[in-house]
Every structure is written in C-alpha cells, then in structure tokens.
Simulated scan of single mutants.
Amino acid sequence: MARRFDHLADVEAFVAVVDHGSLTAGAVALSTTASVLSRAIARLEGRLGTQLLRRTTRRLSLTDAGRLYLEQARTAFSLFDSVEREIQGQEGEQLSGRVRLTVPTTYGHYRLPSRLQGFLAQHPQVQLELNITNRNVDLVAEGFDMAIRLGQLPDSGLVARKLEDATLCLVASPTYLKRRGTPRTLEELAQHVCVPFVLPSTGRIAPWLFSTQSGDVDWTAPAGIQVSDDVLGMVSLAEQGVGVCQTYDFIAQERIRRGQLVEVLPELRGRSRPFSLIYAPHRRLSAASRALIEALAG
C-alpha cells in the first residue's frame, strides 16, 4: 500500500520558508540548507501540479494557489499540534505538554508571576512558553493557545474571561513635585510635563481616566513626552523625575510605599481598565491549557 502523506516534510518546508520570509531563514529554522528546501518545494509543486511560490533573486511571493495551500497547511499542522498536546496532557494523572501564552508587559511583569506560581508548582511537567509584548498577537495564525488583553475587547469571535478591573492612579516623583509643584486641578495638571502612552492599535494617545464629582472624565494629556511600545517606560520616566504619568495601582503601590513615587490628585482616582483572558473557541485546547485557564480566571 502506497503512503498517502509521505510529502508532509515538503509541506513543512513550504510553510517554514513562507513564515520566515526566505529559503535561507527557513533553512536555519529547520536546521537544514536552502537547497534542500528549494528541492522540497519543487517536489510539492510537482505533486500538486501548480506553482505555490514565485521566486526572484530578491524575494518570494505566494501565488493564489500558494495562499490557499498555506492556509490549509497551517490549519492541519495546528490540529496535529493540538491533539498531540491534548494526549500529552491526558497521560496519567500528571498534566504535561506545552502551553503558549502572550501577555502585555504590565501584566507579565506585575500580576502574572504570582498567578503562575501555584499552577507551575502543581503541574511541573507543563512547559509554558510566555510571550510578553504590547503587540496584539494573532492567536490562531501565530499558534498561541491564549492571551491576556487589556481594555474593552471587540467582538472578534474569541472567548473572553475577565481577570480583573485594574484601578488607575496618577503619580510623579518627589523630586519632580519639589521642582514643579503639586497640581491641584486638571487645569493645573495641563501645565505640567505629562508622560502619556501611544496606543499601538491606533497610534493615538491613550486618555487618562478620572472620576470627578460631575462624572467620569477621559482626559487627553498634553504630551510633554510620548511613550510607545513599552508602557512601563512611562513609569520609569516618572520615577526618574521627568514628569507625571497614569499607571495601575498594582505597579505604583510598592514604589509609593518606598517613597519613589507620590500619588497626585488622589481625589480623582476610581477609574479602572479591564484585563481579560482570551482564547479561540473553535480550537481544541489541551488539558494543560484548560487547566491554566481555570487557574488564571477561575
């Protein structure tokens, strides 16, 4: 009986070349050579009877057939990966397997470690791949099992379970306040050096959220210094006396206790932003992934 899927190594070569952008980079990822991958793709194209990649001396591009085949190949490999991890997680009483989680820097540095300690102690055979970034990762396309996201989530078809509403506060260093004075109103705050964050999704400054006697206020800070990509950079700049920033209580509390930061306009506090755990409902989650979801959101 002839083997039906003896070409899977060629399919893997095709996916690796597209994902990494070149034959050379794909070869490095698969620990082989560019010529080996070139022959593998040629065999695959011969089997299918159509061209998948257009090759020039400078770049590779997908044909229409290549785009269709790539999408289906990624789906197939994702299913293989999922079922292997599910089986690994079901063998015996001890959970095992790999879980891939992506989180924003604020949560990854300040909230997630304490939440993971108990889970990892209880399930030492689980391998956790943790991606800490402020970029909105595409869960399915990039092979992540779940993500922690900030803010109100769009109706994307993903399952979302809220982790917490994180309270915000306004802070500055004692040296800055000594040099510039302490603002008593929003009007006075507008005259200070404000350090807001530029949202990567929109390129706009994230508003500072305040609660006043008249109601909630979304206030756009005059950008003395704009911070992008790493939101924790705002806190570092404020701590060094550069200006005023708004951050989460869970980041500022210890610094306030040590005297490195001082809360400004505390009468305007009370607003918060939500953090949620999200995952794709149509993707088969391994036992280890399901256990981690319950540990984080349960």
Rank of each mutant, 00 (worst) to 15 (best):
V262Q: 13
R271L: 04
R283V: 15
L112V: 09
V17D: 12
T185L: 03
L95G: 06
G215L: 06
F14V: 11
A34P: 06
A288T: 04
R111M: 12
G89C: 03
A223H: 08
L189G: 13
I278L: 12
R258S: 15
A288P: 07
T50E: 14
A172V: 05
D138Q: 15
A42N: 06
H192P: 01
A288C: 00
L139W: 09
T57N: 10
G233T: 13
L158A: 10
K178A: 15
Q117W: 01
L116A: 09
L168V: 09
L163I: 15
T102L: 02
E86V: 06
F14M: 09
N131A: 11
R180C: 11
P200L: 09
I205F: 01
L186G: 10
L48D: 08
G92T: 01
C169Y: 01
T57Q: 09
A121Q: 04
D81I: 00
G224W: 00
E91G: 12
R4N: 08
A223E: 11
Q90V: 00
V18I: 15
R59K: 14
V244R: 11
G203I: 05
L95P: 07
G89P: 09
R74D: 07
G21H: 10
L48S: 10
E91V: 10
T167Y: 04
R161S: 07
G92C: 03
L209N: 12
A160F: 02
L95H: 07
L30N: 04
H7N: 11
A2Y: 00
D6T: 05
E294V: 03
V18D: 02
L189Q: 12
A238C: 05
E129S: 13
T57R: 15
A160Q: 15
F275D: 10
D145V: 01
D230I: 09
G298H: 04
G97F: 01
F144P: 03
L163N: 14
E45Y: 06
R115A: 15
A34S: 13
T57E: 07
M234N: 13
T50I: 00
W219V: 09
H192W: 00
G241Q: 00
L237T: 11
V11H: 06
S211D: 09
L199M: 13
C169Q: 01
W208Y: 13
I41C: 06
Q246D: 08
Q240I: 00
H192F: 02
D155M: 10
E129Q: 13
G243S: 14
R67G: 15
P281F: 08
I41T: 08
Q240E: 12
N136G: 08
F275P: 03
Q226R: 14
E129I: 07
L95I: 05
L62Q: 14
Q127N: 07
L101P: 10
